[in-house]
Design a protein around this nucleic acid. Sequence first.
DNA 1: CTGACAACCTGACAGC
DNA 2: TGCTGTCAGGTTGTCA
Length: 298
Amino acid sequence: MPELPEVETIRRGLAGLVSGLRVTGVRVLDERAVRRQPGGARDFCDRLTGRSLDTPRRRGKYLWFPLDSAGQAEGTAVLLCHLGMSGQFRVDDAADPVQRHVRVLMDLDDGRQLRFLDQRLFGGLQISTARAGLPVEIAHIAADPFTPGFDAAGAGRRLRARRSTLKRALLDQTLVSGIGNIYADETLWRVRRHPETPTWRLRQGEAVRLFVTATEVMAEAMDSGGTSFDSLYVRVNGQSGYFDRRLAVYGRAGRPCPRCGTPIIRMAFMNRSSHICPRCQRWPRGVPRAVAPVGSPR
DNA sequence: CTGACAACCTGACAGC
DNA sequence: TGCTGTCAGGTTGTCA
């Protein structure tokens, strides 16, 4: 579900609701939501209780709250969060009924609760340490296009140095972070490139253009509050995003391409799907369509 | 370095 | 009605 625009929408919502509030109590309703915490749920609660949440930060699809940690020598403690496929944050009155799939409840000192929900449990929370402003677990994640000082030219050079294909490269969080399946497909449609185009085939200007386009798509999505297909992605206040109305190809197989009217097709990609316009995004010249399985007849 | 694949999970939906 | 299979926005680790 949540890619960069959704995570950023959530971050902004949380910034206005919980920044500066103190966590007075923590309840882990499903241990799997904190399985990345080395000391388990007990350790998670101990390390979070009594701390104040600073304004949340984000890199790519990761979100974290610096915790007030004056006097800590070896780094700043943070509450690190990844939403996986179905993670959500909600801020509710402590007396409000607890929604389905709530995994962690955090009491705040203004009488409300920060609630972490996650249907599929691919996401999770942990208490971590930040060094140089970055939680150590995500030091390997590349900057995203909205990171101050983002180097599009450098990203373009690294993309062209890869011996891979465009969609794989766009999804690679160690090249540029934040882009997921939706925005990769939308970006490739805008630049009229097929997902299987070899990375080394782009000229430098085209590679930079690819990331600039991805940035534009995601900025527009943020303006719409993100993309909601169902209740698995909603904002902190429960509202849906509405960028789905602006999608050109993702999830639109069989519907007309907004540019040329040709029906959009869905194709298998890494146990998932790619959505393309077969007319705007031609198969790259000289690239074999498919490799015949070894030993297959004729 | 690159790719393929399994694993981590739940639930909605289609088809029989 | 109920069973089975398929699919879904992501990341990580292992193996070739």
